[in-house]
């Protein structure tokens, strides 16, 4: 069993992980920048190490953080959320340095970070996805033809994008023509990849996500869904579990789809599968 965990995060989630460690008899190690000298996670953890003056960059330095984990004799690292939590490189460095990364493997993080590859995996597994282009787009004319078939509005998305960047809603053909080069340039700068694809825009969906757990022995289960529709500018404000607007059949169906998605992607550890549900046709599930 794991004996000592470095928590590569701050704030309430770092405190949450300290609490789990304490209940399991595992030692916890906090890291903190100068700005966080008086932070609660530093006081609550068994040990704490200073990262210096860089308030944000300190928490993003994967090599330095893993070095600290090795030096403080940790055998595992928990990334929390935000910061490096979905960084495939951190998972890879941990593996090389024989620190257990508490999350999926770098391979799985990379595969699910590539949105067209993730879409292909889900389609093959029979999980419903939002209608969209067949893989990446070759050029603007293909995009226009594809959008015509899907019907406007469409979302033009960077294949390696995330966090709301490299994504544009296009209301009509003129919009798509105007945004095409812009999204490619944004994607190239922000994510180092010029690949883009199209999806039909689901207008005012309900945002439902299913919690899954998968172990290294091939077992995967779901823990039902959360309704995160109450959000402001894509920032969630209130979340509800289970969703008060799903029938038991829909709940069952979504859970099964999420487990299928997890198994198809070779997932391991805790993860979340997001679904966008159309309000008017609750029986039709887009994802």
């Amino acid at each position: 069993m794991i004996k000592k965990i470095l928590i590569a995060n701050r704030g309430e989630i770092a405190v949450r992980i300290v609490r789990a460690c304490a209940e399991m008899g595992i030692k916890s190690v906090a890291i903190y920048t100068d700005a966080d000298r008086h932070a609660l996670h530093v006081k609550k953890a068994d040990e704490a190490y200073n990262l210096g003056p860089e308030s944000v960059a300190g928490y993003l330095n994967a090599h330095r953080i893993v070095n600290l984990a090795v030096a403080s004799k940790c055998d595992a690292l928990h990334p929390g959320y935000g910061f490096l939590s979905e960084n495939a490189q951190l998972a890879a460095i941990c593996r090389r340095r024989r620190i257990r990364f508490i999350g999926p493997s770098s391979r799985v993080i990379r595969r699910l970070g590539d949105k067209t590859e993730a879409r292909r995996t889900m389609i093959e597994a029979g999980v419903p996805v939002t209608p969209g282009s067949d893989g990446n787009l070759n050029d603007l004319e293909e995009a226009v033809g594809c959008a015509e078939q899907l019907g406007y509005p469409v979302m033009l998305k960077a294949t390696s994008g995330g966090g709301g960047r490299g994504i544009r809603r296009c209301e009509n053909e003129a919009d798509l023509r105007k945004n095409y080069d812009r999204v490619i340039s944004e994607a190239t700068k922000a994510f180092g990849s010029a690949d883009v694809f199209l999806e039909k825009c689901i207008v005012n969906p309900r945002h439902i996500e299913v919690q899954i757990l998968a172990d290294s022995h091939g077992n995967a289960i779901h823990l039902f869904e959360r309704d995160c529709s109450i959000q402001r500018r894509h920032q969630k404000l209130i979340e509800i579990a289970p969703s008060p607007q799903l029938s038991d059949d829909q709940r069952q169906h979504l859970g099964e789809m999420a487990v299928r998605a997890s198994k198809a992607s070779g997932y391991e550890n805790a993860g979340t599968v997001e679904f966008l549900l159309l309000r008017m046709a609750a029986s039709t599930l887009w994802r």
Partner: peptide, 29 residues
Amino acid sequence: MNTRLQVEHPITEEITGVDIVQEQIRIAA
């Protein structure tokens, strides 16, 4: 598919009684 622990994981813990962070640690072990 979000490959991390989510901010809102506690509500799932409340309705199911499963401690998601402890499960994460056990899976990693």
